[in-house]
Design a protein around this nucleic acid. Structure first.
Lengths: 256, 256
DNA sequence: TAGTGGTCTAGACCACCTC
DNA sequence: AGGTGGTCTAGACCACTAC
């Protein structure tokens, strides 16, 4: 055991007290000057310790108020049932889930012509930078930013299904709309990763320090080729994804 | 536009230079004192700026060496094909994938009797704290810690399949071994989330600041009930998960 | 030995919130 | 007005790496 630096001792002590319930979620921590006295350390040193906890997502701080133990309410998204990822029509999977949880959903929506980013182009099998229709959605729960979702459609598909490029909602859902125009999604490929947010994402999702994003990229296929690529960016502290695969009878049964 | 604090200006400037290739992945950044001169700021201020980039996972620092732009080599794990999550037998999915990528896999393994953690107990439909067999695995790629995996089996299952509780490998894989003893896994439920690592996880996975973990929890079912719960903790900067669902013909076809 | 980052201090001033 | 966190400085000393 080597001696820890003082700011780590501060962080570790506070972490223990948070874990053991001395400071439950939502509670306020002592002020920097109180901690400074308690640990016989300069204010800057306790700030380093608190900074550690902040970047680990355990506490948040705000000017004039103090440090508060973070609380997380996790929202679950069933990716394997999420048939229609599409968009802000009423009655979409997102709004339904949120409303069922007794929360208030809200989303903003826009459509753009956008050159395909490299990763999207690769998945859609189109040239990087070629024209795609981007349907973009910014989602909130009780006015808290929750996730952003960007779906890219290749331009050849827009010729078959022109409403993709029009600004309004597609009431029946884009997946159903596409099916009605001869392009049925028969399979998809999901990729999931995580990282710290870019400054841009941090701003849009109002993410504080210490909260990663969960990235979900879904590429949908007809029996011939890729027909869309959806990139969803979740606040990592508020969301969890799940997949139900195979027979789930054993899951719903009662124990014994 | 409000004026940014100086340490953010430092961080933003360096971020831009990293993004535009002035400092490519693996490159060394100028030293703190050089940056201090360049930005006309105290050493502590440029340290704050660099600290931001570190906690965002963009750069790493080491004493005596300097700051280096982080580089990520992502490993892809196909969760929907990963039939046998089980364990360090030779020829398991993990070793195979790693070897195929021209890298050297390595894993340590242990078996314990362990009281069920609350979240696991809930999923296995057993009493919290009741006896479970824990098969634990710590995985490396080229000696870099990659992930940890803990699988919990309920004690009733161990009576039917006693080798679960024995220390050694199960050559044919635990899933196959279970099937041979009358308990076939017919479905599973996957949950995926992300957060910053605990100090414990940071130590085991040698995670630096600014790198989140990707958490994967798989609960497997027979046609009757839950038979196992596997908790995998990945280094978020090195791993990506994916799922293939439905018909994938459109994915493999060539464009046009 | 020289240069790098890591820790720590003491103090100044600012911005924000509550009363 | 008084307390909170946010920014910034100047300087000291330590620990690690390279040569």
């Amino acid at each position: 055991m080597s001696k820890q630096p003082k700011y780590r001792q501060v962080a570790d002590a506070l972490r223990r007290e948070i874990d053991n319930g001395t400071y439950p979620p939502g509670a306020r921590l002592p002020s920097e000057s109180e901690l400074s006295a308690r640990f016989d350390a300069s204010r800057n040193t306790v700030r380093s310790g608190l900074g550690l906890l902040v970047t680990q997502g355990l506490v948040t701080s705000s000017q004039g108020l103090g440090y508060e133990v973070a609380k997380h309410e996790v929202f679950e998204l069933n990716a394997s049932r999420f048939e229609d990822l599409s968009f802000p029509q009423n009655g979409d999977a997102y709004s339904t889930d949120v409303t069922n949880a007794g929360r208030r959903p809200h989303q903003t929506f826009r459509v753009e012509i956008h050159p395909a980013p490299d990763d999207v182009a690769e998945r859609l099998k189109v040239e990087p930078g070629s024209r795609t229709v981007l349907r973009f959605c910014h989602r909130f729960v009780d006015d808290v930013p929750w996730s952003t979702q960007a779906t890219y459609y290749p331009s050849w598909l827009v010729e078959e299904a022109p409403r993709l490029a029009e600004p309004g909602d597609i009431e029946q859902g884009t997946t159903r709309y596409l099916a009605e125009h001869g392009t049925e999604q028969v399979g998809y490929f999901d990729e999931i990763s995580t990282r710290m947010p870019t400054p841009d994402e941090a701003r849009r999702l109002e993410i504080g320090a210490g909260v990663p994003v969960l990235l979900w990229m879904r590429t949908g296929y007809s029996d011939q080729r890729p027909i869309r690529c959806t990139v969803t960016t979740f606040r990592g502290d508020l969301n969890r994804m799940n997949y139900e695969i195979g027979d789930q009878a054993g899951r719903e049964n009662e124990p014994q």
